[in-house]
């Protein structure tokens, strides 16, 4: 397929996932900070905003949500990622299942009703639209290159978000609610509890890195990205081993983790750079970047 369309599909996947990840995190962070009136709320806000790569200095739960909700032109924010997803989708609407395109438009329309007065409810309705959008994709997406690129993008974004969340170490900051908040922020609380493991900081961190039952663990996302990219390799008759090396290293380090907790933290710290490296590798191999074309005399 055309490189431009593949690249747009890939980023559509990343932005959709980012929108979902950020919505979930914000719902839970908002809960946590609203319930906790103690002095370290402000510290928590700073920590979280830095962890999400946001520029600003929020002093309350409300300010944090406002900052992270952000603006249409900053794809590092929730609103920005939804808008970016929508503009990417528009560029490739000819190759997307039409219901999927429609769902993305409706998702985008939902942001018109966002209210900082009721962030929980507003975020929840965004999550609902995202659930519909993702459901339609799972249901209707053909087994084509575009869908594979979208899923690769989505899996890489998940890894990135997960490692950013874990880097915050909420479990240490809020020993009482932290572990549960972290799990809830990625929709993993029930799955975790069913494993009948005590709700401890270490337990939660390990689970989110290596779980084979939870599809958003770093290990599972890496596996998915790996598999999807190999599908693309077959379709395009190109090699991807070198591109997948950073992710493959993570996978094997997770597999042989043992009880080394320092190694666990090292893996978390390496995830974001590994995702960035793989993204660059995919770009160079498949998207054939041309840079910005500005011709001058």
């Amino acid at each position: 397929m055309l490189s431009r369309l593949a690249e747009t599909s890939f980023w559509l996947g990343r932005y959709l996932e980012r929108a979902e990840g950020m919505s979930r995190l914000l719902v839970e962070f908002h809960q946590l900070l609203v319930q906790d009136n103690r002095a370290h709320v402000k510290r928590g806000c700073t920590l979280i905003s830095h962890g999400l790569g946001l520029e600003g200095d929020p002093k309350s739960a409300r300010e944090l949500v406002a900052l992270a909700y952000g603006e249409p032109l900053n794809p590092g924010t929730l609103l920005g990622s939804i808008h970016s997803a929508r503009s990417n989708a528009r560029l490739i609407r000819d190759i997307l299942p039409s219901d999927f395109y429609q769902a993305i438009n409706q998702l985008n329309a939902t942001t018109d009703d966002f209210s900082l007065a009721a962030p929980g409810r507003s975020l929840r309705s965004i999550l609902d639209r995202l659930a519909v959008t993702n459901g339609i994709f799972e249901w209707l997406a053909p087994e084509d290159e575009s869908a594979h690129f979208l899923t690769v993008g989505r899996s890489l974004e998940r890894m990135d978000l997960m490692s950013r969340l874990l880097a915050l170490k909420l479990e240490n900051e809020w020993r009482d609610q932290g572990p549960a908040t972290t799990l809830r922020a990625v929709g993993a609380l029930n799955t975790y509890l069913r494993e009948r493991v005590p709700l401890t900081t270490v337990g939660v961190r390990r689970f989110l890195v290596e779980s084979e039952t939870f599809p958003r663990s770093i290990a599972e996302c890496a596996k998915r990205a790996d598999a999807e990219l190999r599908e693309i390799a077959v379709m395009t008759q190109l090699h991807v081993d070198d591109i997948l090396r950073p992710i493959g290293m993570l996978e094997s380090q997770i597999r042989y983790l043992g009880d080394d907790l320092d190694e666990l933290e090292r893996i978390i710290a390496k995830t974001t750079p590994a995702v960035a490296q793989t993204t660059d590798g995919i770009g160079l191999r498949f998207f054939r970047p041309i840079g910005s074309i500005v011709w001058s005399n």
Binding site: M1, L2, S3, R4, A6, D94, E145, I232, M235, T236, Q237, L238, F286, F287, R288, I290, I293
Partner: peptide
């Protein structure tokens, strides 16, 4: 057939190529 934009195509040695995931 493929629907392309100008940036999908480039000219080299007086020939026109299309950038695809498989190559040119």
């Amino acid at each position: 057939v493929e629907l392309v934009e100008g940036r999908d195509l480039y000219c080299k040695n007086n020939q026109i190529f299309m950038r695809t995931t498989k190559g040119s």
